[in-house]
């Protein structure tokens, strides 16, 4: 059963809350499991950048301007391999296509007629998988006018956090035992998976998860770099089509 947005119960703090309250609430709710997992991955990026020969300031510059880990890893990897600017930009751009469907599906929740256009672009600047998952989980139950400021607070805190995490990773590079390093990398797929299951509303959502899970490794081996985008496009479309087919009762 698909639930209508109106059926979701707003959290208690929303009652009589101003936009400023929602912004503060967003900041306060940032220290959480998903944010810790993201910060851990950015610590890993800082270490990687150090190994590739970037300065600490350059590593932080990449984190704040790109704000999407797979693209950053590709960028730094290309630098380490001495690749040319154009081929590096091309590889990065392919890994970033996946940000398009994420942005399209979250932005409508952040548009309230009060938030200026340029802020929408700033909101999109930091939109990646974790922010998308947390947005889909946290925003729909909130009243219209509070979603944007809540999101603003959440991502402001995250933004500050990834700058610190990148710096920390740069400084810690090579200090973490490889067993623990492996465990930290492992947190990301586990968090992604559990959150996807958590935000699933119906069997069609779960079907999209299942098809995507099967296609992901196959397309990675057959069409690297555009693999994620194609996985999403094929998996999502098939799940959508099957949902329509079932709805039509045939």
């Amino acid at each position: 059963m698909a639930s209508k947005p109106g059926e979701l119960r707003a959290p208690a703090w929303c009652h009589g809350a101003s936009r400023k309250d929602a912004y503060k609430r967003g900041i306060a709710s940032a220290p959480s499991v998903p944010v810790i997992v993201v910060l851990v991955t950015f610590v890993g990026f800082g270490a990687l950048a150090q190994g590739a020969g970037l300065t600490m300031a350059q590593a932080v510059f990449v984190s704040v301007t790109v704000f999407a880990l797979p693209g950053q890893v590709v960028l730094v990897d290309q630098i380490a391999q001495g690749a040319a600017l154009l081929s590096t930009a091309f590889a990065v751009t392919l890994t970033s296509v996946r940000l398009l469907p994420l942005t399209i599906s979250l932005m409508p929740y952040l548009r309230d007629g009060i938030t200026p256009k340029w802020v929408e672009f700033a909101f999109a600047h930091v939109l990646a998988i974790t922010v998308w998952i947390e947005g889909m989980r946290r925003l729909p139950p909130l009243p219209d006018g509070l979603r944007a400021p809540y999101y603003g607070g959440f991502v402001s805190a995250l933004f500050l956090g990834i700058m610190c995490a990148t710096t920390l990773g740069f400084l810690l590079s090579g200090q973490v035992p490889k067993e623990i390093g492996a465990g930290l990398i492992f947190l990301t797929p586990l968090y992604f998976f559990l959150s996807l299951i958590g935000v699933s509303k119906n069997s069609i959502d779960l079907l999209a998860v299942a098809i995507g899970a099967v296609l992901g490794p196959i397309l990675y081996l057959t069409a690297p770099s555009l693999d994620l985008f194609l996985t999403g496009l094929i998996g999502g479309t098939v799940a959508y089509g099957l949902g329509k087919w079932r709805e039509s009762g045939s």
């Binding site: 469907p101 998860v209 299942a210 992901g216």
Partner: peptide
């Protein structure tokens, strides 16, 4: 539809990171 595309995309990344991992 776009939400299902995003969902499948993230799920694909999960199994790829799990079955064909990089780094440590």
């Amino acid at each position: 539809w776009v939400r299902l595309v995003s969902t499948a995309l993230v799920a694909g990344l999960v199994t790829r990171m799990l079955l064909l991992p990089a780094g440590a």
